[in-house]
Design a protein around this nucleic acid. Structure first.
Lengths: 224, 224
DNA sequence: TTCTTTTCTGACAATTGCTGTAAGTGTTAT
DNA sequence: ATAACACTTACAGCAATTGTCAGAAAAGAA
């Protein structure tokens, strides 16, 4: 069952949207408070986010900007603000579609369905900025370049991406991949970090992983 | 450089579109005849297809229907037909976006850019009906299921998908993968076909590959 | 500047997965 | 019934992966 998160402050419209999509067999989550909601949205791991722009205490533009760097689900803007500039701004911020209210339910459904279908393959992809990792194949994509990682390399990079932009401790990585360091030498992590860094270099991602001495590793934020 | 194919019968509009996108640095191909044009379109391997609906001798709907089963590029409909039913029909046939004329150039560009960005990862994906194969990782996707194939399995399936729904001869597959049968036993193909079929079965694709006795193999059309 | 701690690197060997060969079985057409 | 074609399983060799080892390099503390 696919999950849709709806961020809409108008109570009647929100309820109508919940009804529209629930009847179509979607699981719908529609928070009624919107401050600092982006963490919740990411945790819900929706297949689609339907987002209004005018929200109390924040704006859909701000939410979009904060969500996009790590999300792999599409964002559909549904708003009463009908100017071309607003539409262009939303698309620039990473929204996939921009619809004006009022919108006939069948049109909204058709566009929503199409977005979820297009993003079907992104369900197993995680990302950090411009770097994406497919969790089934450990294929790493960055700009026009791709690199298939080995299993161990892929699992390490996954830990870093899922924590982006925070630091992951060596202890946590050792626990996740080898169940701790009781049965393997701790150097196994450093050796595989070297191999992973070499693979990243092959597609132009030199120095993408930062060592935090005495703690672990992280993918810094920035122009990547 | 990204390539855009434009299918538009109105000469002035076609030229305006060519100018709009060429100035943005895209390679633009805009045929001026439209009968049996879908084969050309597929051969161009565009990053985006911009398609009118009203065309002499055919319709954008028909083109869309014929192109979609094997394409991995997005289709953006640009039309004067402004009814909700036409939009729904186009989306149903697999179009990714539907814009009405007249459309401000900056809006068209923004939507086109967003589609090409979304489809960035599809540049290395080929498909046959509902079956998709990533050419970098040989990850096979079918409905909600995925399977990473070995190198040999992937290369064989690629031959079949690229020829879909036609038959590929055993000779052609042998030539493509092993340079013919001078240096390997011909049974190598049957053995690997068995392995490939086993991998397809793992994700619900029993009997997807059809043997054409004395000739080769093919992926039939149908409800797959 | 020196010393200690931490991290990195290259080489090697063991393990695992891949893949062609061989032999036998099954299917289809004559 | 027979021949031709296709499929399947097991085996062995090869290639890729991955942990260990030893030494080098880098960073921080004294």
């Amino acid at each position: 069952m696919r999950r849709i998160v709806i961020i809409e402050d108008d109570i009647m419209l929100r309820n109508a949207l919940i009804e529209t999509f629930s009847q179509r067999g979607y699981e719908v989550i529609a928070p009624d408070t919107f401050v600092a909601v982006e963490k919740q949205i990411s945790e819900y791991r929706p297949d689609l986010l339907i987002l209004d722009i005018g929200l109390p205490g924040t704006s859909g533009f701000d939410l979009c900007r904060r969500i996009r760097p790590t999300s792999t689900f599409p964002i559909l803007i549904l708003t009463a603000r009908d100017t071309l500039n607003d539409e262009l701004r939303a698309l620039e911020l990473g929204a996939e579609d921009y619809l004006s209210k009022p919108c006939p339910p069948e049109r909204l459904i058709a566009r929503a369905d199409r977005l979820m279908r297009t993003y079907e393959n992104a369900r197993h992809v995680i990302r950090a900025g411009t770097l994406q990792l497919d969790l089934d194949s450990y294929k790493l994509s960055y700009k026009d370049k791709n690199q298939v990682l080995s299993d161990t390399e892929g699992r390490i990079l996954r830990e870093l991406i899922e924590a982006y932009p925070n630091t992951v401790s060596k202890t946590e990585i050792m626990r996740s991949l080898w169940g701790g360091s009781d049965y393997v030498d701790e150097n196994v992590l450093q050796v595989n970090m070297t191999r992973l860094r070499k693979a990243l270099s092959a597609i132009g991602l030199e120095d993408r992983i930062e060592t935090v001495r005495g703690v672990g590793y992280r993918l810094p934020e920035g122009d990547h």
